[in-house]
Write a protein that binds this DNA or RNA. Structure first.
Lengths: 187, 187
DNA sequence: GGATATCGTTCCGTCTATGGAACGATGGGG
DNA sequence: CCCCATCGTTCCATAGACGGAACGATATCC
């Protein structure tokens, strides 16, 4: 299946600087002064200034206050858009966008790009795991290796991934798609 | 109809507790002990313990280290992604998670909750707009008002939304789902 | 039983993120 | 010209987040 990046992300000087730039950009886009945003968010000017210049390691409380006033999700402040864990395979690049948890089911949402010229085969998952693929552009051949399906732009497919299954782009064009993987929580 | 959360989100005792539960859940799902995760993430056991029990206000550095080791986006640790723009309807709450743009198509991804006891009907969209709904939990009756479909947990449905279409929860339980809306860009 | 290991929590000294105040710079208005 | 408001940065005492060590609890082996 999709192997996860076991390498941990880290908070570095660079991360801090990028985060600061994001905040400053969002603030100026809204025509807010540093003092004004600090006042509205209920934080000190010193804190916000230090944050924007990348010389601080903010707490969750501070980040929440700022994101709330800027009316953006926290993720918009923190990471570069693609700092999420990315999985690279022979033919597939996947970015984990969200993890939903509802009752006894965990659902992971990936942004998927399938490169042409190769086929990626993933081994079986745990029983009960289902995958849903929606193609934005290009044409993909996906599903169980025993019974693959052609999915064109705007179409979608789903399959039970309790056996080996593959991903391939058809026609020499990369495929852009979203992939939902639904895991029953077997605890 | 479109309400935006202009009120700032705040870091409260409850936020901290929910965040802690998310972390603990992700950790135990992976079969990791608290000590082991702390060691791998390079943080103190005291820090992780306090975080999971909701008695701390972690720094970005700590959150990054944990999210990295759990291989999830930071948003999966922090409480529900409801700091994002949210659309509230009579029966439906939708959160815009992502917008993809690929060639001549724009695709919006929503996180959807349908409350029981009401039916929400949306007017026709532009021609060529298609919606894809994947249900995580509960059972939904969705699709064109002329031909609605029943979708149970783990199933999905798609329909062309060039006519009025509705969303309803069946069986008195809220429905949790993801919704992809695919717009051809006709400009 | 005793010895050992690891679990998650609590204690505590250190370090640092915090907000208020003071700072120099800038820009109108009278 | 002076006066005053507001800009973003820097200084600083304090609150609190940090990791190491010690803790009691539980399991496993001899």
């Amino acid at each position: 299946m999709i192997e996860r990046d076991a390498q941990g992300k880290q908070w570095t000087a660079e991360t801090a600087a990028v985060t600061g730039l994001h905040i400053r950009r969002l603030r100026t886009e809204r025509g807010l002064s540093l003092s004004e945003l600090a006042r509205r968010a209920g934080i000190g000017k010193a804190t916000l200034s230090g944050l924007e210049t990348g010389s601080r390691n903010p707490t969750a409380e501070t980040l929440y206050a700022i994101a709330g006033q800027l009316a953006v999700p926290l993720a918009a402040l923190l990471s570069a858009p693609d700092a999420a864990p990315t999985v690279e395979g022979e033919a597939v690049s996947a970015t984990l966008l969200e993890v939903f948890r509802d009752g006894a089911v965990s659902t992971e949402l990936y942004r998927l790009t399938i490169r042409p010229g190769a086929v990626q085969v993933s081994p079986a998952h745990a029983p009960g795991v289902v995958e849903y693929l929606t193609v934005f552009s290009g044409t993909a051949r996906v599903g169980p290796v025993a019974a693959p399906r052609l999915v064109a732009a705007g179409e979608h497919a789903c399959w039970v991934s309790d056996g080996p299954h593959g991903y391939a782009a058809v026609g020499g064009v990369p495929v852009e798609a979203s992939l939902l993987i639904r895991h029953p929580l077997t605890d």
